[in-house]
Amino acid sequence: MRPGAGAVAGVVVVVAALSGGLVAPHDPAAVVGTPFSVPGGAFPLGTDGLGRDVLSRVLAGGARLVLLALAGGAAATAAGVVVGLLAGWVGGVTDRLLTAALDLLAALPLLLVALVLAVAVPGGAAVVVAAVAGGAPLTARVVRDAASRFRGSGWVEAARGRGESTGAVLVRELAPALGPLVAADAALRFVLGLQLACTVALLGFGPQPPSPDWALMLRENLPGAALNPAGVAAPAAALVLLACGVAWSALSRRGVAG
């Protein structure tokens, strides 16, 4: 497999999820047919319990989840990289204090944290906060270990041996070497954000009906699953594709990084 193939697959599923709403044949919130009609005719995936087009709702129902997962994943990665670099590159007491603090944060059950926070703030904000609290420590640990290993590596010493400044060592040497590692890790943080966003949405603390949302659709269409299984199977397949596609890109990137 080409090294970039996984990353391309990851980007493709994310972009598809974000832009699917643009090609939806019907208004995702409009009642256009009889409830729970089976796939066929004007409705390739049938309709849901209110008679809305399942295909249109699936096409439009990923954008919010993906944006939320991107926000949570990006914030967790950014925070983790900053803290991990600080701990791994500076070392010593800074390292020990930061590592201890991260251990505490990582020990929190993040789903419970997200739910408890959802009582006070909107569900989306709770997801992002929990994704950062739960994800940043994992990223920080990966970055810390790599940075402290790289700090004593031959190529950093070689950079010193040709008089590179500390800034140049960080920007020219360390950042590109960490790149693949951080990219793979960011994909896993995205998956974590997606899982949290799904759970919070399915429990009803995210988008409210009639907005289309894959997680919400799972719950809405489950009672009529025997009448139109596609109502559940389609959003489930979309979520599996998205989560596994991104996770797979992380695995293949990690393979390159060694």
Partner: peptide
Amino acid sequence: LGAVQLLHQDPLGALNPAH
């Protein structure tokens, strides 16, 4: 710096993987 240069023992570890 230019006058004295070191070849590290492990050539893989001595090269930045990204360069």
